[in-house]
Amino acid sequence: MSHGTIETPYTASENRYETIPYRRSGRSGLDLPAFSFGLWQKFGTDHPFETQREIILHAFDLGITHFDNADRYGPPHRAAQKNFGRILGKDLAPYREEIILSTKAGNPIGPGPYQKGGSRKSLLGSLDHSLRDLGTDYVDIFYSHSPDLSTPLEETVGALVSAVEQGKALYVGISNYRPDRAHEAATLLREAGVPLLVHQPRYSIFDRSIEQNGLLDAAEQGGFGLVVYSPLAQGLLTDKYLETIPDGARAADSAFLSPDVIDETYRQRVTELDKLARSRGQSLAQLALQWVLRQPAVTSALVGASSTWQLDHNFEALSFPPLTDDELAVIDEYGVHGTGLGL
Protein backbone atom coordinates (compact mmCIF):
# COMPACT_ATOMS: atom_id res chain seq x y z
CA MET A 1 0.00 0.00 0.00
CA SER A 2 1.26 3.47 -0.78
CA HIS A 3 1.16 6.43 1.50
CA GLY A 4 3.98 8.46 -0.01
CA THR A 5 1.90 11.55 -0.69
CA ILE A 6 -0.20 13.61 1.67
CA GLU A 7 -3.40 13.05 -0.32
CA THR A 8 -3.32 9.24 -0.10
CA PRO A 9 -5.64 7.92 2.64
CA TYR A 10 -3.74 5.78 5.13
CA THR A 11 -4.80 2.34 6.27
CA ALA A 12 -2.48 0.52 8.65
CA SER A 13 -0.95 -2.81 7.68
CA GLU A 14 -3.11 -5.70 8.88
CA ASN A 15 -0.10 -7.76 9.97
CA ARG A 16 1.65 -4.97 11.87
CA TYR A 17 1.75 -6.95 15.12
CA GLU A 18 3.14 -10.18 13.70
CA THR A 19 6.90 -9.58 13.65
CA ILE A 20 7.99 -7.17 16.38
CA PRO A 21 8.39 -8.42 19.96
CA TYR A 22 6.91 -6.44 22.83
CA ARG A 23 8.58 -6.27 26.21
CA ARG A 24 7.12 -5.46 29.61
CA SER A 25 8.33 -2.17 31.11
CA GLY A 26 9.60 -2.95 34.59
CA ARG A 27 6.89 -4.05 37.00
CA SER A 28 4.15 -2.13 35.19
CA GLY A 29 1.37 -3.59 33.08
CA LEU A 30 2.60 -1.90 29.91
CA ASP A 31 4.33 -3.60 27.01
CA LEU A 32 6.48 -1.52 24.66
CA PRO A 33 7.82 -2.53 21.25
CA ALA A 34 11.48 -3.60 21.18
CA PHE A 35 12.07 -0.55 19.00
CA SER A 36 10.52 2.82 19.77
CA PHE A 37 10.61 5.62 17.24
CA GLY A 38 12.32 8.86 18.27
CA LEU A 39 11.69 12.27 16.71
CA TRP A 40 14.78 13.88 18.23
CA GLN A 41 16.37 14.76 14.89
CA LYS A 42 15.15 15.16 11.29
CA PHE A 43 11.54 15.94 12.25
CA GLY A 44 11.72 19.72 12.35
CA THR A 45 11.04 22.27 9.65
CA ASP A 46 14.43 21.54 8.07
CA HIS A 47 13.25 18.23 6.59
CA PRO A 48 10.36 17.57 4.17
CA PHE A 49 7.08 16.88 5.93
CA GLU A 50 6.01 14.30 3.36
CA THR A 51 9.15 12.26 4.08
CA GLN A 52 8.49 12.49 7.82
CA ARG A 53 4.93 11.28 7.29
CA GLU A 54 6.05 8.37 5.15
CA ILE A 55 8.60 7.23 7.76
CA ILE A 56 6.22 7.51 10.73
CA LEU A 57 3.42 5.64 9.01
CA HIS A 58 5.88 2.96 7.89
CA ALA A 59 7.06 2.61 11.49
CA PHE A 60 3.48 2.00 12.61
CA ASP A 61 3.05 -0.55 9.83
CA LEU A 62 6.05 -2.39 11.29
CA GLY A 63 4.38 -2.59 14.70
CA ILE A 64 6.32 0.28 16.26
CA THR A 65 3.59 1.74 18.43
CA HIS A 66 5.70 3.99 20.67
CA PHE A 67 6.57 7.46 19.35
CA ASP A 68 8.93 9.50 21.50
CA ASN A 69 8.84 13.29 21.36
CA ALA A 70 9.75 16.36 23.42
CA ASP A 71 8.96 20.05 23.52
CA ARG A 72 12.60 20.72 22.58
CA TYR A 73 12.71 18.66 19.38
CA GLY A 74 12.85 20.54 16.10
CA PRO A 75 14.21 22.85 14.84
CA PRO A 76 12.67 25.08 15.94
CA HIS A 77 11.62 23.84 19.37
CA ARG A 78 8.17 22.15 19.31
CA ALA A 79 8.28 21.60 15.55
CA ALA A 80 8.58 17.81 15.85
CA GLN A 81 5.47 17.70 18.03
CA LYS A 82 3.53 19.88 15.62
CA ASN A 83 4.57 17.72 12.67
CA PHE A 84 3.61 14.55 14.50
CA GLY A 85 0.33 16.20 15.50
CA ARG A 86 -0.48 16.76 11.81
CA ILE A 87 0.15 13.08 11.08
CA LEU A 88 -1.82 11.98 14.13
CA GLY A 89 -4.78 14.14 13.15
CA LYS A 90 -4.86 13.17 9.49
CA ASP A 91 -3.67 9.57 9.41
CA LEU A 92 -3.32 7.96 12.84
CA ALA A 93 -6.39 9.31 14.62
CA PRO A 94 -8.33 6.04 14.09
CA TYR A 95 -5.43 4.20 15.78
CA ARG A 96 -4.86 6.53 18.73
CA GLU A 97 -5.68 3.82 21.28
CA GLU A 98 -2.98 1.61 19.74
CA ILE A 99 -0.27 4.25 20.10
CA ILE A 100 2.04 5.06 23.01
CA LEU A 101 2.75 8.76 22.66
CA SER A 102 5.42 10.25 24.90
CA THR A 103 6.73 13.75 25.40
CA LYS A 104 9.15 15.51 27.73
CA ALA A 105 9.66 18.89 29.37
CA GLY A 106 12.41 20.55 31.37
CA ASN A 107 15.22 21.13 28.89
CA PRO A 108 15.59 24.75 27.76
CA ILE A 109 13.26 25.83 24.96
CA GLY A 110 13.55 29.60 25.33
CA PRO A 111 15.06 32.48 27.31
CA GLY A 112 12.32 32.75 29.92
CA PRO A 113 12.65 31.37 33.47
CA TYR A 114 9.63 29.09 32.95
CA GLN A 115 10.90 27.67 29.64
CA LYS A 116 13.31 25.31 31.36
CA GLY A 117 13.82 23.34 34.53
CA GLY A 118 11.82 21.03 36.74
CA SER A 119 9.43 23.47 38.41
CA ARG A 120 5.73 22.78 38.50
CA LYS A 121 5.17 25.89 36.37
CA SER A 122 7.64 24.77 33.71
CA LEU A 123 6.59 21.13 33.46
CA LEU A 124 2.81 21.48 33.55
CA GLY A 125 2.81 24.60 31.37
CA SER A 126 4.90 22.81 28.77
CA LEU A 127 2.66 19.74 28.90
CA ASP A 128 -0.43 21.82 28.14
CA HIS A 129 1.39 23.39 25.21
CA SER A 130 2.53 19.96 23.99
CA LEU A 131 -1.02 18.62 24.05
CA ARG A 132 -2.05 21.50 21.80
CA ASP A 133 0.92 20.81 19.50
CA LEU A 134 0.01 17.14 19.26
CA GLY A 135 -3.72 17.67 18.95
CA THR A 136 -4.52 15.16 21.66
CA ASP A 137 -6.00 15.47 25.14
CA TYR A 138 -3.46 13.17 26.80
CA VAL A 139 -0.04 11.61 26.29
CA ASP A 140 0.72 8.09 27.37
CA ILE A 141 4.08 8.94 28.98
CA PHE A 142 5.19 12.33 30.31
CA TYR A 143 8.87 12.74 31.16
CA SER A 144 11.01 15.04 33.19
CA HIS A 145 13.60 15.49 30.43
CA SER A 146 16.60 16.20 32.68
CA PRO A 147 17.24 16.55 36.39
CA ASP A 148 17.05 20.10 37.71
CA LEU A 149 19.25 20.25 40.80
CA SER A 150 18.04 23.77 41.61
CA THR A 151 14.45 22.59 42.11
CA PRO A 152 13.37 20.28 44.93
CA LEU A 153 12.83 16.80 43.55
CA GLU A 154 9.54 16.69 45.45
CA GLU A 155 8.25 19.57 43.29
CA THR A 156 9.29 17.90 40.03
CA VAL A 157 7.77 14.60 41.09
CA GLY A 158 4.63 16.38 42.28
CA ALA A 159 4.19 17.91 38.83
CA LEU A 160 4.47 14.47 37.21
CA VAL A 161 1.90 13.10 39.65
CA SER A 162 -0.44 15.99 38.87
CA ALA A 163 -0.17 15.29 35.14
CA VAL A 164 -1.53 11.79 35.77
CA GLU A 165 -4.15 12.91 38.28
CA GLN A 166 -5.41 15.52 35.80
CA GLY A 167 -5.77 12.89 33.08
CA LYS A 168 -3.13 14.51 30.89
CA ALA A 169 -0.73 11.55 31.10
CA LEU A 170 -1.21 7.85 31.78
CA TYR A 171 2.35 7.15 32.96
CA VAL A 172 5.43 9.15 33.91
CA GLY A 173 9.11 8.84 33.16
CA ILE A 174 12.44 10.52 33.78
CA SER A 175 15.41 10.97 31.47
CA ASN A 176 19.14 11.51 32.02
CA TYR A 177 18.89 11.10 35.81
CA ARG A 178 21.82 9.58 37.68
CA PRO A 179 21.01 6.37 39.59
CA ASP A 180 20.78 7.91 43.07
CA ARG A 181 18.36 10.64 41.95
CA ALA A 182 16.45 8.15 39.80
CA HIS A 183 16.05 5.90 42.84
CA GLU A 184 14.84 8.82 44.93
CA ALA A 185 12.37 9.88 42.23
CA ALA A 186 11.09 6.31 41.89
CA THR A 187 10.56 6.11 45.66
CA LEU A 188 8.65 9.41 45.79
CA LEU A 189 6.50 8.44 42.81
CA ARG A 190 5.70 5.04 44.26
CA GLU A 191 4.67 6.66 47.56
CA ALA A 192 2.37 9.01 45.60
CA GLY A 193 0.68 6.06 43.88
CA VAL A 194 2.11 6.90 40.43
CA PRO A 195 4.98 4.44 39.94
CA LEU A 196 7.86 5.35 37.66
CA LEU A 197 7.31 3.60 34.33
CA VAL A 198 10.55 4.28 32.48
CA HIS A 199 13.92 5.97 32.63
CA GLN A 200 15.46 7.14 29.37
CA PRO A 201 19.29 7.05 29.43
CA ARG A 202 21.90 6.98 26.70
CA TYR A 203 23.33 3.51 26.06
CA SER A 204 25.47 1.95 23.36
CA ILE A 205 28.53 -0.22 22.79
CA PHE A 206 30.56 3.02 23.08
CA ASP A 207 28.62 4.43 26.05
CA ARG A 208 28.37 1.98 28.94
CA SER A 209 27.66 4.51 31.66
CA ILE A 210 24.52 2.73 32.84
CA GLU A 211 26.49 -0.50 33.32
CA GLN A 212 29.16 1.30 35.33
CA ASN A 213 27.10 3.69 37.44
CA GLY A 214 24.52 1.16 38.67
CA LEU A 215 21.48 2.33 36.70
CA LEU A 216 20.83 -1.16 35.32
CA ASP A 217 20.62 -2.46 38.89
CA ALA A 218 18.54 0.52 40.01
CA ALA A 219 16.00 -0.17 37.26
CA GLU A 220 15.63 -3.78 38.32
CA GLN A 221 15.28 -2.86 41.98
CA GLY A 222 12.99 0.09 41.31
CA GLY A 223 10.71 -1.78 38.94
CA PHE A 224 11.05 0.62 36.02
CA GLY A 225 12.10 -0.13 32.47
CA LEU A 226 14.81 1.53 30.40
CA VAL A 227 14.10 3.08 27.02
CA VAL A 228 17.62 3.73 25.73
CA TYR A 229 18.55 6.46 23.26
CA SER A 230 21.52 6.85 20.89
CA PRO A 231 22.08 3.07 20.60
CA LEU A 232 24.09 3.77 17.43
CA ALA A 233 26.12 6.51 19.16
CA GLN A 234 24.95 9.21 16.73
CA GLY A 235 25.97 7.05 13.76
CA LEU A 236 29.41 6.14 15.10
CA LEU A 237 28.26 2.52 15.36
CA THR A 238 27.57 2.22 11.64
CA ASP A 239 29.87 1.77 8.66
CA LYS A 240 29.34 5.42 7.70
CA TYR A 241 32.66 6.71 9.04
CA LEU A 242 34.97 3.78 8.33
CA GLU A 243 36.95 5.69 5.71
CA THR A 244 35.82 9.30 5.61
CA ILE A 245 33.01 11.66 6.67
CA PRO A 246 30.45 11.62 3.85
CA ASP A 247 28.64 14.78 2.79
CA GLY A 248 25.40 15.21 4.73
CA ALA A 249 26.46 12.83 7.51
CA ARG A 250 25.61 13.78 11.09
CA ALA A 251 29.28 14.42 11.96
CA ALA A 252 29.38 17.02 9.20
CA ASP A 253 26.33 19.07 10.18
CA SER A 254 25.08 18.13 13.65
CA ALA A 255 25.49 20.02 16.91
CA PHE A 256 25.53 16.68 18.71
CA LEU A 257 28.51 15.03 16.97
CA SER A 258 31.88 16.58 16.17
CA PRO A 259 34.07 15.46 13.25
CA ASP A 260 37.02 15.61 15.65
CA VAL A 261 36.01 12.27 17.17
CA ILE A 262 36.47 10.44 13.86
CA ASP A 263 40.13 9.62 14.57
CA GLU A 264 42.35 6.61 13.95
CA THR A 265 41.59 5.05 17.34
CA TYR A 266 37.88 5.24 16.59
CA ARG A 267 38.34 3.82 13.08
CA GLN A 268 40.49 0.91 14.29
CA ARG A 269 37.89 -0.11 16.88
CA VAL A 270 34.88 0.34 14.62
CA THR A 271 36.61 -1.62 11.83
CA GLU A 272 36.97 -4.64 14.13
CA LEU A 273 33.35 -4.34 15.25
CA ASP A 274 32.29 -4.11 11.61
CA LYS A 275 34.24 -7.30 10.85
CA LEU A 276 32.40 -9.09 13.63
CA ALA A 277 29.05 -7.90 12.32
CA ARG A 278 29.88 -9.03 8.79
CA SER A 279 30.89 -12.46 10.08
CA ARG A 280 27.36 -12.73 11.47
CA GLY A 281 25.83 -11.64 8.17
CA GLN A 282 24.61 -8.33 9.53
CA SER A 283 25.60 -4.67 9.52
CA LEU A 284 27.37 -2.91 12.36
CA ALA A 285 24.19 -0.93 13.05
CA GLN A 286 22.19 -4.15 13.40
CA LEU A 287 24.84 -5.60 15.72
CA ALA A 288 24.80 -2.47 17.87
CA LEU A 289 21.01 -2.50 18.18
CA GLN A 290 20.97 -6.18 19.02
CA TRP A 291 23.64 -5.59 21.67
CA VAL A 292 21.63 -3.02 23.66
CA LEU A 293 18.47 -5.13 23.49
CA ARG A 294 20.26 -8.11 25.05
CA GLN A 295 19.99 -6.41 28.47
CA PRO A 296 16.90 -7.63 30.39
CA ALA A 297 16.45 -4.17 31.98
CA VAL A 298 16.23 -2.55 28.53
CA THR A 299 12.58 -2.48 27.52
CA SER A 300 13.02 -0.68 24.21
CA ALA A 301 15.67 0.97 22.05
CA LEU A 302 14.94 4.32 20.45
CA VAL A 303 15.67 4.52 16.74
CA GLY A 304 15.26 7.38 14.34
CA ALA A 305 15.35 7.24 10.56
CA SER A 306 15.82 9.51 7.58
CA SER A 307 14.23 7.01 5.18
CA THR A 308 11.95 3.98 5.23
CA TRP A 309 14.90 1.91 3.96
CA GLN A 310 16.95 2.85 7.00
CA LEU A 311 14.05 1.97 9.28
CA ASP A 312 13.62 -1.43 7.62
CA HIS A 313 17.35 -2.06 7.88
CA ASN A 314 17.41 -1.33 11.60
CA PHE A 315 14.26 -3.36 12.15
CA GLU A 316 16.00 -6.42 10.71
CA ALA A 317 18.30 -6.44 13.75
CA LEU A 318 15.51 -8.36 15.49
CA SER A 319 15.90 -11.36 13.17
CA PHE A 320 19.49 -12.42 13.91
CA PRO A 321 20.57 -15.19 16.32
CA PRO A 322 21.63 -14.18 19.84
CA LEU A 323 25.16 -12.97 20.41
CA THR A 324 27.48 -15.68 21.73
CA ASP A 325 29.82 -15.28 24.69
CA ASP A 326 32.80 -15.17 22.32
CA GLU A 327 31.15 -12.48 20.22
CA LEU A 328 30.31 -10.45 23.32
CA ALA A 329 33.98 -10.70 24.36
CA VAL A 330 35.06 -9.23 21.01
CA ILE A 331 32.57 -6.40 21.46
CA ASP A 332 33.96 -5.73 24.94
CA GLU A 333 37.50 -5.62 23.54
CA TYR A 334 36.81 -3.07 20.82
CA GLY A 335 33.70 -1.37 22.16
CA VAL A 336 35.67 0.74 24.58
CA HIS A 337 33.56 3.05 26.74
CA GLY A 338 33.84 6.65 25.59
CA THR A 339 35.10 5.93 22.07
CA GLY A 340 34.20 8.88 19.86
CA LEU A 341 32.04 10.42 22.58
CA GLY A 342 34.59 12.33 24.64
CA LEU A 343 33.57 10.52 27.81
Results as ranks from 00 to 15, higher is better:
K82P: 00
E184Q: 15
E220M: 11
Y177A: 11
L124D: 03
A79Y: 04
T136L: 13
T19G: 00
W309A: 10
K42N: 15
Q212W: 09
Q310N: 08
I174G: 01
R267Y: 12
R280C: 08
D133C: 15
W40V: 10
P75Q: 15
A70Q: 11
P195D: 03
R190K: 13
G338R: 08
D71R: 12
V298T: 01
S306A: 11
V157G: 06
P111A: 12
H183M: 14
S28K: 00
S162E: 13
L237W: 11
N107Q: 10
G118E: 05
D71E: 15
L293V: 04
D207S: 11
T8Y: 01
L57R: 15
S28W: 00
M1V: 14
A159R: 07
D133M: 06
I100N: 00
G193N: 07
L216Q: 05
T8A: 13
P33V: 00
P108H: 07
L149K: 11
G167I: 02
G193K: 12
L232T: 07
L343C: 02
L311N: 09
H313S: 09
T238E: 12
L226Y: 02
Y95P: 02
R208H: 05
D91T: 04
G106V: 06
A297N: 06
G340E: 07
S2N: 14
G74M: 14
E264C: 02
S146C: 14
S102V: 07
R24P: 04
P21F: 00
G74S: 12
L242D: 13
Y73M: 13
Y266P: 10
L62H: 03
Y10A: 07
G26T: 09
A182I: 04
R120F: 06
R96L: 13
D91L: 02
T11M: 10
Q221F: 01
H3G: 13
L323R: 02
I210N: 09
V292R: 01
T324W: 05
F224E: 00
N314F: 03
V194M: 06
A329I: 09
S119L: 09
H3F: 15
L242R: 11
R250I: 15
A34L: 06
I210G: 11
P76M: 08
D326W: 01
D140F: 01
A169K: 01
S283R: 10
Q310T: 05
A182S: 08
I174F: 06
R86C: 00
Q286E: 04
V198W: 00
G112F: 04
Y10I: 10
V228D: 09
Y266K: 11
Y10G: 07
D274K: 13
E7W: 13
F60L: 04
A79G: 07
G173T: 07
Y138H: 13
